[in-house]
């Protein structure tokens, strides 16, 4: 509902008083609406807050939380913090990327089903290596376990038509 989304963006801007200092909360809320930050919406936010688009782009690219690309339906967040890294998270990352044909440059499948990204720490080092898929947490992951999760999702999707 593009119209509804636009109205929501306007509401957010109004609630934040069109205050340029409130840029980050604005971006957070807007990302909730779209799932990502579309460029033209960023330009609109820049105009509304009287900031140059380059500044807004700078803030949006600084924080790992913000994304300018639409994400897949299933977002794999693989922890690459110290503990997980030591326990072999790179192998898991490679396995996931190989399976889905993704790379560092392209983190989302072209059918927008899967996104694979790394995060610095999920705060569950005891379970290392850790991975989350949307809201579910997987501990002591191995490359095999990780790719099985993909197989399961694909199967469920197929079963549900």
């Amino acid at each position: 509902m593009a119209v509804k989304k636009f109205e929501d963006v306007c509401d957010i801007l109004d609630r934040q008083g069109r205050n340029p200092a409130r840029l980050i909360p604005v971006l957070q809320e807007v990302q909730k609406i779209y799932g990502y930050l579309p460029e033209e919406v960023l330009t609109f936010i820049a105009t509304s807050l009287d900031l140059p688009p380059a500044r807004v782009y700078g803030v949006a690219t600084f924080y790992a939380h913000f994304t300018l690309e639409p994400k897949g339906r299933y977002v794999f967040r693989l922890c690459d913090g110290t503990a997980c890294h030591v326990k072999g998270s790179s192998d898991i990352l490679n396995a996931l990327r190989d399976k889905l044909g993704l790379s560092e440059e392209q983190d989302t499948t072209s059918d927008k089903m899967f996104t694979v990204e790394t995060v610095s720490c999920l705060g569950a080092c005891g379970l290392a290596p850790v991975m989350t898929v949307n809201e579910s947490v997987y501990g002591q992951v191995t490359p095999e376990k990780a790719t099985e999760v993909i197989d399961e999702i694909v199967k469920n999707e197929e079963d549900n038509g």
Binding site: R55, Y57, G58, F62
Partner: peptide, 10 residues
């Protein structure tokens, strides 16, 4: 007061 360029990424 143009602001055509800025820092991006981290």
């Amino acid at each position: 007061n143009v602001g055509a360029i800025d820092f991006a990424n981290r």
